[in-house]
């Protein structure tokens, strides 16, 4: 998963896509995941960080991350692989 270069992400979890004019807000966990994606961290490392930080089972976190990635793709935040 790679966030499109032009997407502006603030620490507060506010996203702006300058080519479509769309803006989104994500919750603190979403913001953390986006920050990790921006840093180029691979999916398994993101999953590890999330399960270590929050009381969540790996399976649930994996499912949630997959869903989140689907939304990011739908809203053209990440590049299509």
């Amino acid at each position: 998963m790679k966030i499109k270069q032009q997407i502006a992400i603030s620490d507060t979890g506010f996203l702006f896509n300058p080519s479509t004019g769309e803006s989104f807000t994500v919750n603190p966990v979403g913001a953390e995941i986006l920050a990790m994606l921006r840093d180029g961290k691979p999916e398994d490392q993101i999953l590890e960080t999330v399960t270590e930080t929050y009381a969540v089972e790996k399976k649930t976190a994996e499912k949630d991350l997959h869903e989140f990635a689907g939304m990011l793709k739908m809203f053209q935040i990440i590049d299509k692989e």
Binding site: Q6, P18, S19, T20, G21, E22, S23
Partner: peptide, 22 residues
Amino acid sequence: AMRKQYITDKGKAWAGISIDDR
């Protein structure tokens, strides 16, 4: 270029944002 963000019932832009779409 602008994307309408808020539209009146007449379809007029009441708010909009400048965008960069090549």
